[in-house]
Design a protein around this nucleic acid. Structure first.
Lengths: 129, 129
DNA sequence: ATAATCTTTCCAGTAACTGGAAGGTCAAGG
DNA sequence: CCTTGACCTTCCAGTTACTGGAAAGATTAT
């Protein structure tokens, strides 16, 4: 599969996909003409990168998360503890997003007039409820 | 409140706080000695920025979210539609995080041996369940 | 008084892309 | 066969969002 196709399926720009190859996140095959040739497994990785980057994980964290799957040399205890620490981070992010969701819902519900609503969004949004 | 204190309370490095001032996200008072002087409202904004940046919103999106609260000139219909579109994005992020959470939970639960677990993390993680 | 710990500005460097030029490849139409 | 347009390639420069460090002024602790 060519890069344009992989781009469509993963939601990542071709530029970014090439960049991810540059920094060693994946290494697609090359066709005889020199074109990159992406497997479904490559597309899975790209889609995963697209998601996890959008969720605020750094490229290095994404590399670790990918390694959770790929690294056959790492001992299972390490994998488990890394997964657990990422899990805590995920749970924290979910909590924060729920609070933001709550605040935005409140804003949408109460903001039907033609002037600024009278709701202290920042106090809620900044997480001190 | 000095920048060190605001940094502690918001979870943002002082460097980043000064940068946010440079790009116009907030404008703290100045004390007579030239030191920046942060109000509680400033700290709320910083904490909000710390969170929403960590959740994958760009600085420009954060600027818009802050504007939802602050912009007295914008018509309420605009505020509402912007809040609604951000809300959809938040809901999508929550869904994606739940899927990642599920995958990591699975990994932690089944990964008790000393070798790589036999679970197709990437297929789950890349969102094609 | 002096040392340690702030704070300031400024300038340079890094991370993670993003845009654009210059050129090679491929599939479709004349 | 040839050309046109949509792909693809590499390379290099620019942007966004910080981050580190120097040089110097202010504050606090002994």
């Amino acid at each position: 599969m060519n890069i344009g196709n992989a781009s469509e399926r993963s939601g990542l720009p071709a530029k970014t996909i090439r960049y991810y190859e540059d920094i060693g996140l994946l290494k697609p095959d090359r066709a005889d003409n020199g074109y990159r040739d992406y497997s479904m497994s490559d597309v899975h990785k790209l889609r995963f990168l697209q998601r996890s980057r959008g969720l605020g994980f750094s490229v290095e964290e994404c590399r670790q998360l990918l390694a959770l799957y790929e690294d056959k040399d790492r001992a299972s205890a390490d994998v488990k503890s890394m997964a657990q620490s990422k899990l805590q981070e995920v749970e924290r992010k979910i909590t924060e997003l729920r609070e933001l969701q709550h605040t935005l819902n409140h804003l949408v519900a109460h903001c039907h007039g033609d002037q600024r609503p009278d709701c202290p969004i920042l106090e809620n949004i900044s997480g001190e409820a």
